[in-house]
Design a binder for these strands. Sequence first.
DNA 1: GACATATCTAAAGCC
DNA 2: TAGATATGTC
Length: 734
Amino acid sequence: MNKYDTLNEKQREACFCTEGPLLLLAGAGSGKTRVLTHRIAYILENNLAKPWEIMAITFTNKASKEMAERVESLLGECSQVFVSTFHSACMRFLRRDIDKLGFSKSFTIYDTTDSKKVIKDIVKNNNLDKQAYKEAAVLSEISKAKNLLMSPDDYYNAYASEHRKRKIAEIYEQYQKELKKNNALDFGDLLYYMVKLFESEPDVLAHYQNKFKYILVDEYQDTNMIQFKIVNMLAKKHKNLCVVGDDDQSIYKFRGADITNILSFEKYYPSARVIKLEQNYRSTKNILDAANAVIKGNTYRKAKRLWTENPVGEKISFYNLPDEKQEARVIVELVGANLQAGYKYKDQSVLYRTNAQSRVIEERLFNQGIPYKILGGTNFYQRKEIKDFIAYLRLINEPKDDVAFDRIINYPKRGIGASTVNQVKDYAIKHEMSLFEVLEMIDEIDEFTDRNKKKLGEFAELIRTFAEEAKGMDSLEDFAADIVDRVGFYDELHKEKDKAEEKIANVRELIGKFKEYDDTAEEISLTGFLEDIALISDVDGYDEDADYVTLMTLHSAKGLEFPLVYMPGMEDGLFPSYMSINEGDEQVEEERRLCYVGITRAQEKLVMLSVKNRFLNGNTSYNPVSRFIEEIPDELLDVKSAKRSAQSYSARQKVKERKPTPYKSYYKAAKKDVKPAKEIDLKVGDFVMHKKYEVGEILEIRPAGADYELSVNFTSVGLKKIMANLSGVKKIDF
DNA sequence: GACATATCTAAAGCC
DNA sequence: TAGATATGTC
């Protein structure tokens, strides 16, 4: 028996069909990763290609790593297959040849925050209305354009009749100029310039075309036009292109994913073979039936029906609860119950539509002392203190990086205020220089006061010294620790009242990552490290061995599986979201696919929850149960009543049951209607809530000048006075 | 002009 | 809730 005997017939067919274009339609849980890895092994074992002549594109770095490992374990040896994401592959190719496009090879990669900053400055400098040209919206237009391979000119011409789009085209143009000046690329540029480079340098393209004899693309349903183009360019010579995907799992339209890439693969490659993998090995029958029932609601899809030989399993539990706190409570109770039943924490995962939903659940898990990990949200590398520190490394690595410069020129505070910085910026714009270049010659510029010259000169000197040291560096950890010391990073964080300890701990953790890098990297370089972290995705932080409950968005969960899945927030308006409902059927279909992805993550048990009143993002919404729940046949659902689950109340929770009015609502209500405070429904005897845990009873309300003074007896801290007026709560003495 | 504090505003999904 | 902006103080 050889390794291929463990595959089913269809899987084997896909595995051995190595020559020519192949479309592999692989339903959820149908073992496509197994097929891909076996296919690579087969190609290698039969000497059809050398390892480095195979390119496999995955969706996340984590998936790349896994695939490489699995190929290695199949072959029992270290292989050098080129497994990478689109973005990392392009980054690596561009590192080699980007000088041909006028960038230098030490280019920086800007993340969304950096990009927004650049756009914001452009909008400001052009005296445009910042409300009409919000950074996020403009950036999304720009990246859409890039994903369609449209230059600023193309974009301008395509939308010449629309005023707003003409303006955006202008911003786009300046944005590209600014990035080039900073020697920086954003995420979209990695792909965009890749195509540009291939187009303008046929030799470079030919090199890769010759090199990669076999190309595999995973999660093909989520590729966009430009990625399709890159794949086509690379596969043009050998045409051994195998794409794997499931149109029902296409969930990234918002970032340009083009579902037609998969739906019309056969049109582009008329000779393409199509193989469908429809047997699911992951989920129980009930779970799969529910998934099939939901996805049936979509019209634009390839006909297929997943089936399984797995047991029927339990019905899908559905809870409709009063509010998000109850929802969190039920989830956490079930986590505990399932732990008793023999499941581990790591077998259980909470998947939600929006990151904001994680907070309540996190609080509850935290309260109950259950180990958990939240993926995404504020990514570790997005935290302010981390970004600030990384900005030092970025500026040291590439002094032209104006965004990094701007972050740290006065952080930690060194007496260089906003107006001085603006002066530097004005000078830089006038003379077309980078900010750091201005500093390099600050002594010769008369406009600056002696004091500022000194301060700015000192900063420039500091960065120069570090850059000098970076050259001969053999430990990034030591280097970073040195920067922290000399810059006084911890001292600065100590001064910040809010979560100073946590921030310092984060920076220490970062230093720990430098150590890790020192230990694992083949060659230690600043560029190398910055490269590694620039393209990290949320799921890259997921560790399936560690025993904790995992919380993440449905988007992040793609490609993962868990014995137990909880899906909170099954409400129309949240999932599917208002936006998608307003935008029409096509958007709702995308949400439906997202729901399908969620359901099919579950192997054994699936719990779905919705609530009647949800307090989210500062206001309460009353949403009906999600249409996706309605689409699941009754016989598959086990509708649980809220009361039954609410057995184990502690005394403290009973207090909470009396529905304390959050201050926030009070504030809102008072402000919206501008009613006299008396008419606001806060009265003596009501319970109010402060922040997360403090619940208290109002003992007295009395006028105090224009304001009101409330005496509140808090359960934990006792009697406190709270000042309130028409515009809300003024002061809380804790 | 730098820094501290008060006030306002807006909120999806991701490499 | 946080981040940006407006206002106040030295």
